[in-house]
Simulated scan of single mutants.
Amino acid sequence: MRRAKISIIGAGNVGATTAHWCAAAELGDIVLVDIPQTEDMPKGKALDLMQSSPVMGFDSNIVGTTSYDDTSGSDVVVITAGIPRKPGMSRDDLLSTNAKIMASVCEQIKKTSQHAVVIVVSNPLDAMVQKALQVTGFEPSRVLGQAGVLDTARYRTFLAMELGVSVEDVSALLMGGHGDTMVPIPSCTSVGGIPVQQLIEPARLAEIVDRTRKGGAEIVSLLKTGSAYYAPAAATAQMVEAVVRDKKRLIPCAAYCDKEYGVGGYYVGVPVVLGSSGVEKIIELTLTNEEKTAFQKSVDAVKELVATMAKLS
């Protein structure tokens, strides 16, 4: 039985760290790709990571390259390529440049890996995954975006910090677009099975939600140069694992919603069952009126972002 083939497009911090997490978990053989202008950089990172395998005890073949020919026949393609967000730069500022990069990457993917599941990580996420679908022409179930796992992880972290409990005991769900309009679902948030509203006052909970929404920007402001990569890469690796091991994980991600939630043909963060064929099922929750209003606001923001991208292209 052959190992899964995982190609990661973009060998920057997020891409290389995703390769690290995937290799350490022995999820498959990995191809780390970057643009020709980087010359031998992806080869150096791949070799360095390979040399850690005897120490850490994992078996994964890791190749660094600037040629998409090496990605041929991939089971999963992760796209992290794009310019990073800098201090003072909104996700929308990235739109024009990263849309062109995404289109270029996806033209190559559809030539080399026609049956792959594609996981988009590049920002602005909800627009980038829409562009990936348009360019690849793949089934919507095989093109999805990593956002919900990261946003939920940040939320769970902040809740655990607030309560002084293990992150393992915090279960949460966030929906909607990846950014300032993401929607917490209180009825799906608990700590050790206890509804979070019984443990944290509404005003304080609202502050934690706001910090979660601005979680990426907070790290950008602290780093000064660059953006978050450990948590985004870990979240991506969890999605890769769900696909290559057909784990049927019920997790939030940016999935193509048509009739679901009345979205009408856009990518938005929703809970899904993720397995070997990609998004195998979208879970439709019964939302409260307040949650519905917030979710619709988030969907409208995504639609506006996609419309802006269409005008720029």
Rank of each mutant, 00 (worst) to 15 (best):
T293W: 04
E241L: 01
R204G: 13
A217G: 15
K247A: 04
K292P: 08
V243I: 02
E207Q: 14
T293F: 04
I200H: 12
V244N: 01
Y229C: 09
I219W: 00
I200Q: 12
I208L: 15
G269I: 08
A255H: 04
Q197A: 12
A242F: 01
C253N: 01
A242L: 01
A255W: 01
I283H: 10
V268R: 02
P195F: 04
A228V: 09
L199N: 13
C257M: 04
D258Y: 02
A237N: 01
C253A: 05
V268N: 08
V263R: 06
S277C: 13
T308F: 05
E218D: 13
G215M: 11
L305R: 03
Q296N: 08
P202R: 06
A294C: 03
E207M: 15
A233V: 04
K259V: 07
L205P: 14
E290V: 08
K259T: 07
T212L: 15
T286I: 06
L285W: 06
K248V: 00
S298Y: 05
V272D: 09
K259I: 05
D258N: 11
A307M: 07
A203S: 13
D258R: 10
R245M: 07
V273M: 02
G278Q: 03
M239G: 01
T236G: 06
V299S: 06
Y266D: 07
R245Q: 03
A233D: 05
L205G: 14
